[in-house]
Amino acid sequence: MQPPAALAIIWARAGALWLGAAASWPPLTPISAERSGGSRPFSGFSRRDFLRGSGAVAAATAIHQQATAAAQEAAGTKVAAGKQTITLNVNGKDHSVQVEPRTTLLEALRTQLDLTGAKPICNDGSSGGATVLEDGKPIQANMRLAMQCVGKKIQTVESLAGDAVPQAFVDCDAQQCGFCTPGFVVAVRAFLNMKPKATEEEIRAGLNGNLCRCGTYANIIHAAVQVVKGGANG
């Protein structure tokens, strides 16, 4: 029985890290608690539990940095297990959320903060439906564990309500069913932050990480061009 794909991917990523880590940490002793001055390490942790998703996960920052085990150790890799309360900074405010190691940022945003603008469309980051900003950079919220985002500034589409981009989407009718629209709005915002004077050619080349099934691309191009021309672009 294959695990569902979304988790498989997360597990695969985390697993790959762990396989690398295992050699240098034979007893898999959590080390962070001591380093960070905690009273005692978590107990009863095993790699099997970790892979089952009910155990612990290495500190999220290390996962996407793809650091070596040694580097992680040096950097103070942290192990967490079970349900945790963490603080996520979303749209300028700190929120306490209850997560498991396997909880994705997308799930935390949608089910705990009721910020449902970012959408669960794919399991592999290929749809762009879950695009949010992390410290100003676009990421796929379904490809990040919530724990990885502690200490980061997360911005969702809901924070862009007064922005020129959603306004341009409305002006240019760049939406039909609208399910992909929030992801696209964030992606356009991020792209134009990076290239405020983007030409139409650059827009056509630079916004291919998001999928739309209704076929709103033509109007999204119009909208992005309008934002650039309107000068309301940061």
Binding site: G117, T156, A174
Partner: peptide
């Protein structure tokens, strides 16, 4: 349009 474009 505004609801669809702002995620609400």
């Amino acid at each position: 349009g505004p609801e669809k474009s702002t995620g609400t």
